[in-house]
Design a protein around this nucleic acid. Sequence first.
DNA 1: CGTGCCAGGTGCCAT
DNA 2: ATGGCACTTGGCACG
Lengths: 259, 259
Amino acid sequence: MIEYTKCSSNNECVEIIKNAVRNKELTIIFGKCTVDYQGRAASKLTEGERFVIIKQDGAIIIHRPIGYSPVNWQPSTSVIEVVERDDRVVLTAIRNKPREIVWVYFSEIYGIIHGKLVDQGEFVMYMDEHEIRDILYENPELIEKGLRIIEKEKPIGNGYADLFGIDKNNVPVIIEIKRISASRDAVLQLFNYVKIYENKTGVKPRGILVAPNFTSSAIESIHKLGLEYKEINLQLLWKYKKAREIRHGTLLEFLAKKK
Amino acid sequence: MIEYTKCSSNNECVEIIKNAVRNKELTIIFGKCTVDYQGRAASKLTEGERFVIIKQDGAIIIHRPIGYSPVNWQPSTSVIEVVERDDRVVLTAIRNKPREIVWVYFSEIYGIIHGKLVDQGEFVMYMDEHEIRDILYENPELIEKGLRIIEKEKPIGNGYADLFGIDKNNVPVIIEIKRISASRDAVLQLFNYVKIYENKTGVKPRGILVAPNFTSSAIESIHKLGLEYKEINLQLLWKYKKAREIRHGTLLEFLAKKK
DNA sequence: CGTGCCAGGTGCCAT
DNA sequence: ATGGCACTTGGCACG
């Protein structure tokens, strides 16, 4: 299923890697290498000990021993080439659109993992922006009393307003939602929609930024631009979500998975 | 340096992982697992074959056999816990600020890689936004004839204008740079700086968006907001960069590394 | 610390 | 394919 090999020669390494890649196996190479990259930008990494992951779809990820982020990578690549040259094992990964190339030069390979992993698991994310939007869509009173939501993801100009509704005085309301913290960027986004809507319809809508919290400069900009903001409580939303799940009969399933 | 172990029992696995983590070794666990995450959001991943990377600084990355992106992760974590429970090896990674927890439940472990990697290599990125800004700072004629740049990263309001200068008619110019493609977001960013500058000084500055290319809606917004844009050629900038490196005497070093 | 902003961002979905 | 936008964004620099 998963095999580990300490190769005795570069030639053997090349063969093992080539075979593994051809068979679309997960392959991880541990060794001392340098890495060059050229494409949208360009980078150089001088010698050190790293590991290179080649995934079953050809994605390549090069990790240093520290840190979350890979130092170099290549998404599911069209061409992977492995050769020996000048006493080094050279791995080349070429992607078109955008045209980008990663070169890994191994001066030494300590070992190679390879094998096929089977993963049919289902991944579900909760409480992302999409879900928050849906909860607010179904419970507009969480934003404001008497608010009626008309549309989700309403196209305005070239963009999309998260929610669009009408308040109790029949004034149109454009709502921009941020999942965590709303900064000035979000205010500008909202302002843009409000301006475009006003230009197009001649009616000045309200603009409400909805988020669990706001940077000080966001609030400053909100006031300056004549917009509004509403703080929401994620815990409360979570309760509404669970209530909704009971209504939709999916909570039992959720709890079952929880077990 | 790097060791691979096929464990015969959960207990043995727990011991190996615990030791490796305690010794700050790079550890990779191959096995069948489910993963839960709770923090800024929450997620569930049902059973499948994956590998879990524990880096030497405690960062945790969980990869499925396909794709560039990890399915779950934890940046350099404060607490990593490994125990056996209900016939499973349970790995818990806890991070504070923000408070987030990842749980990995292994029903089966195929093998464990662990060992210390030494990586003192130097990583250099070329032609990122910072470098482009520096080249334009030193060669303002690439943007416009007669333009004099006064300041890099000029604080305006709560943000920073990439470049600030004076044109040949002594009109102040605020410049926003994008490395690849400028979209409406960048226009709004620039517009924000122009507005704030005008409010503060009473002088209406020009605003120029500089990028290799522009989305159509960006150009539309530029016109609507009375801003300007200037297309730059990265190839040309690259030549200026190399010319600068010759002047600075670093090209030889660059070529030496290239060899 | 938070705030701002870039990133070879990546990924997802829309037209 | 291009565009718009969220992301458990992560990462860095600066006040």
